[in-house]
């Protein structure tokens, strides 16, 4: 007779002695984390031992829902296990890293579990159902728009500087071109006036007196000329000196 398949199922009664009641606890509040894309964020809370004996615990990380075409955030919890002394607490930190390719405005949910590693009030182990206590937190994660990095700001500043420099260069170039044009036209006007003055001089007088008159005119014209027209005046003067020298040599 094969006793393996007789279809009789037996669970033995168990001898259970309750020595003490474990009193695992947690700080109230369900964590909702808003995490920038390409960034990370941390939430911390406390788990507690309100009993008279140490509680060994382990952490079960959350299984987050998946969203098509997006990478599920990485959740790192510290510590993953440990022991809480009686009437004391243990800080638990949940760090969430949001992948760079994810879109803002997405939502993930999962449960962070802290369960007793071993029941503290069981003196015998065996058949039946072992009832383990734990505390849980519903973790909700939202992705938010990526936070600008310092590099981003640097790029913006560089672009602004380049634009300003280009604009300033254009303005300066235009001004210089305008002033050059003005100088040239002035020089032309001065030369023309000299030529006409020379022609007048040859008609009005000769000798030393005529020369003095022409020099006095030249001096007054130099005195009233503006600084921007100085160069033209100097060139005109040079040409006049040359003419004078030529006359003298004659």
């Amino acid at each position: 007779m094969d006793f393996r398949y007789i279809g009789v199922f037996l669970i033995l009664s168990l001898s259970v002695v309750a020595l003490s009641h474990a009193q695992l606890g947690e700080q109230a509040g369900q964590p909702t984390m808003y995490v920038n894309v390409s960034s990370s964020s941390t939430f911390s809370y406390y788990i507690l031992n309100g009993g008279s004996t140490p509680i060994s615990f382990k952490v079960i990380p959350p299984s987050l829902n998946s969203i098509p075409h997006n990478t599920t955030p990485t959740v790192v919890i510290t510590p993953m296990s440990g022991t809480i002394m009686p009437s004391s607490d243990q800080k638990v930190s949940i760090n969430v890293s949001m992948p760079s390719g994810d879109k803002p405005g997405l939502k993930w949910e999962g449960i962070v579990q802290v369960v007793e590693a071993t029941p503290t009030n069981v003196t015998t182990s065996g058949e039946g159902a072992v009832i383990t206590a734990g505390v849980a937190k519903l973790l909700t994660i939202y992705s938010t728009a990526p936070k600008p990095t310092p590099f981003y700001y640097i790029i913006i500043i560089v672009i602004v500087i380049v634009i300003l420099v280009a604009a300033a260069s254009v303005i300066l170039f235009k001004r210089r071109k305008r002033s050059r044009t003005a100088i040239v036209s002035k020089a032309h006007r001065t030369a023309a006036s000299i030529r006409s003055a020379r022609r007048e001089g040859s008609v009005r007088g000769t000798g030393r007196r005529a020369g003095r008159t022409r020099r006095a005119k030249r001096k007054s014209s130099r005195g009233t000329a503006s600084a921007s027209r100085g160069r033209a005046a100097r060139s005109a003067s040079a040409s006049r000196r040359g003419a004078t020298r030529r006359r003298a040599s004659r």
Binding site: I11, L12, S13, L14, V16, A18, H21, A22, Q23, L24, G25, E26, Q27, A28, G29, L48, G50, G51, P119, N121, V122, E127, G128, A129, V130, I131, T132, A133, G134, V135
Partner: peptide, 13 residues
């Protein structure tokens, strides 16, 4: 705010 848990029994047959 805090909540605790204490279960009894911790083994059932």
């Amino acid at each position: 705010g805090t909540c605790y848990i204490s279960l009894s029994p911790t083994l059932i047959s």
